[in-house]
Design a protein around this nucleic acid. Sequence first.
DNA 1: GTTTTAATGTAGCGATCGCTAGAGAACGAC
DNA 2: GTCGTTCTCTAGCGATCGCTACATTAAAAC
Lengths: 212, 212
Amino acid sequence: MTSMVTGQETNGQARPSRSRGRPRSFDRATALEKALAAFWRHGYEATSVSDLTRIMGIGAPSLYAAFGDKRTLFEEVVRVYTGGHGAFADRALAEEPSARAAVERTLREAAVRYTDPEHPQGCLIAHAATNCTSPEVERLLRERRDASLAALDARIRADVAAGLLPAGTDAAALARHATAVLHGMSQQARDGAARADLEALAEIAMAIWPRT
Amino acid sequence: MTSMVTGQETNGQARPSRSRGRPRSFDRATALEKALAAFWRHGYEATSVSDLTRIMGIGAPSLYAAFGDKRTLFEEVVRVYTGGHGAFADRALAEEPSARAAVERTLREAAVRYTDPEHPQGCLIAHAATNCTSPEVERLLRERRDASLAALDARIRADVAAGLLPAGTDAAALARHATAVLHGMSQQARDGAARADLEALAEIAMAIWPRT
DNA sequence: GTTTTAATGTAGCGATCGCTAGAGAACGAC
DNA sequence: GTCGTTCTCTAGCGATCGCTACATTAAAAC
């Protein structure tokens, strides 16, 4: 567990299975999870490096040696989030038989996930780079949002082409609506909305879909 | 703050027609508008005092003498925004004959306002205190969002009581949906959505309302 | 004119920001 | 053991943060 992937992420280059020098005194994956939680709750800029070192339980030089600079660490955190807590929407889109079913599942699941007290509320991709001084970091998350919107849009168009949705369906508007509701749910979760509040919102939001 | 008895201006109250000392070399309202634009675009924390002094065209001591500290300036900016660019939702709620009409007008107007190139995109109340280190500032905007949601909720309940909406209507869910769509529109506007995109979204979002 | 009052420009306060140099500590290789 | 390598700790870099002391300037009051 300790030296499973040690250091490969840092510069991409493979290291010998047994590293030579002094071994790392902390678990890299665990520290990364702590950083994820911090960035998730407070966003990129509001989480200082000294916050991170305190929360991750390591010194600043260890952080920089293991993760590069703050921005590189954030990018890795975003990858971890996207592959973990944030993967449910992509999963629904991949597994459900229709765009409608995928959106319904996504919204219902978001109501649960966004209010889960086990981790910060809402969506990291939606919030963590808001009001961010660094254009690169802001772009990183904006591109992810754009990609999600485009994927949903494409899926809805495919359903229209396949006859799963009426011919006149405004795919772009449907996709934007689902995305807007999702972001709105994230905001409301951060503002303290309860799971049941968001579940009712998710249910009512599905009413805009044409009956198939 | 010692000799800040001039703080009368802070709350908009008139000063003695002629003040005694050296007159202010800038227009207070104009400077406030510049500060509004900066906070609106970059948020509370990402807008530094040195950003503000540069944009407002005044020195730091002048800023502190005229507006108090950064947080007090932001609070005044929020009041200006709430009474100006951000007043359209309250206005719709006050002027339209039904909650449904008010929401429809609000969403349509938001599509135009949130994408207006004359000022920053989206809604200041929704974004300016996201990822904010100061709990007071974050609370300031969150309470405004809560109040808007509560006002809409109350209005929908009133319409249900008046028979304008079916008896079984889930007022809370309807209010949360409209709020979520509004916040989602604000996010999408900031991400570069065009006015027509948000207008189509606004139109489709109204489909969840029960036919009267 | 002098005095009083208030706004201005300069210059810099202590604190924090992201980040790193340098010395010591813990390992494998020999 | 010694050597080379790598991580950790202390300490602090330059830059920026929000904010202010101080001297100066421009007006009304006298």
